[in-house]
Amino acid sequence: MSKPSALEEKLDHLQHHFIDSDQQFEASKMGMWVFLVTEILFFGGLFVAYIAYRAWYPDLYLLASTELDTFWGAVNTAVLIGSSLTVAMAIRSAQLNQIKGLIINLYITIGLACVFMVIKYFEYAHKFEKGILPGSYYSYEGIAHEKANIFFSIYYMMTGLHGVHVLVGIGLMIWLVIKAKKKVFHSGYYTPVEITGLYWHLVDIIWIFLFPLLYLID
């Protein structure tokens, strides 16, 4: 930190209550990790519901998951992993002061996130048409199990909450693009990019578990 050029560095971002950029960066990042802990426990409740009901009705899960299309689930997994790669590339671009690369990578990430949501939309629409709706709205006759609606209540809650997180992620990415275009970010300050990246990777990790647990049972 005692570089001779320190005085010439851009320090607009530095809040007065931090000693230097590194301290501010580390504080933000730790705050984000604490938030991610709450996110894991937030989704954890739904995973626990999944596990408790699977222990009660193992045959229901085998039957009901045949209604989910493994192909599109796998495509969406690949799309999210690809978007994690582009977010990591965006952070790398910011670290190297390549603002153009940062913006391009953010655009690709937004595009991939939209692809994910469009696929999810078609999956939902296809089920709604058949009458596969959550809870008491369930009216599909094709699954020979009296508790079939329970599997889909859990499915819609888990993928729905995940989908909301993807939408929030898209919003955050758009915000990052706007800030990047205003030349806010440079190699000395890219904290929002780093932290949004952490969030995005966690959304990816959650999907990595949802995919085998919901689509790959049969």
């Binding site: 590194d22 960066f25 992993i81 990591a88």
Partner: peptide
């Protein structure tokens, strides 16, 4: 907090994740 990964390395990580996704489908 400022580790910079090479582009090659990040691609390697993504490719290993794609391969594991394929394996998890293939084992079914």
């Amino acid at each position: 907090g400022h580790h910079i990964s090479s582009a090659k390395f990040l691609w390697g990580v993504a490719i290993s994740l794609f391969m594991l996704t394929f394996i998890t489908v293939a084992v079914t």
